[in-house]
């Protein structure tokens, strides 16, 4: 968020942006980091990488949404 003056209608836009971006972001996070974790599991044979990747993906995407729209 920048310092420029905010118009009231921007708040509605941000809210809708956030609301409709969250599922897309969380899904993407799961795919990217779950995918990396899955590949690591296959490569190293350590099964634990897949769930770690999945959870990391969710955490990162929620953090992204929080930083982008949360304040």
């Amino acid at each position: 968020m920048s310092e420029q003056k905010r118009r009231p209608e921007d708040d509605g836009r941000d809210f809708a942006n956030a609301a409709w971006s969250i599922p897309s972001y969380v899904l993407s996070g799961i795919i990217v980091y779950g995918g990396i974790g899955w590949l690591l599991s296959r490569w190293t044979g350590v099964v634990a990488f897949t769930p770690i990747g999945l959870i990391l993906g969710v955490v990162l995407s929620v953090y992204l949404v929080y930083r982008k729209y949360g304040r």
């Binding site: 971006s21 899904l27 993407s28 996070g29 990217v32 990162l60 995407s61 953090y63 992204l64």
Partner: peptide
């Protein structure tokens, strides 16, 4: 803008996938 630098490395793939494919 507005994110700490090292975080970009982690978040950029999510943004890309989200906007270009998942959305």
């Amino acid at each position: 803008p507005g994110l700490p630098k090292p975080i970009y490395l982690l978040l950029a793939p999510i943004e890309f996938l989200s906007n270009m494919i998942v959305a």
